[in-house]
């Protein structure tokens, strides 16, 4: 086994890929191949560090990608979730049992229709 034969496997090993045993034994015993493996690891780590430094701070809002019809659907969904949120919150803070609240509503409707 020569370093030239092992070179592609050094890269594969760096990526955690499985390599033949005889190649692994060569890399373990060869200073040049071990240095290459170490350098690949350093270069990879440095690239990831660079990527974090240059990562775009903002990306365009998705609304720009959606059609007008989709925007209308989204707006309706937001409004619907606002209403259901209000209804849920009202239910959570209610101090009287719900069936009492329902009876009260019916009484109010009955009284108001009786007044007419």
């Amino acid at each position: 086994m020569t370093c030239e034969e092992a070179v592609d496997f050094v890269s594969a090993l760096c990526d955690g890929e499985r390599i033949p045993r005889e190649v692994a034994e060569h890399i373990g015993q060869c200073g040049d191949c071990r240095a290459r493996l170490r350098d690949y690891a350093i270069l990879g780590a440095e690239l990831r560090r660079t990527a974090r430094l240059h990562s775009p701070e903002t990306v365009p809002a998705i609304e720009g990608l959606l059609s007008t019809a989709e925007k209308v659907v989204m707006q309706r969904a937001k409004e619907a979730s606002r209403f259901t949120g209000w209804w849920r919150k009202g239910g959570e803070v209610m101090k009287i049992p719900r069936f009492v609240f329902a009876i009260l509503i019916l009484v109010i409707i009955g009284l108001s229709s009786g007044l007419e």
Partner: peptide
């Protein structure tokens, strides 16, 4: 993919060194 990655790493290492 394996061979191209290896070639790219070799090139990067050579320039870096």
């Amino acid at each position: 993919v394996r061979s191209r990655l290896s070639a790219a790493r070799q090139e990067l290492r050579n320039i870096w060194r």
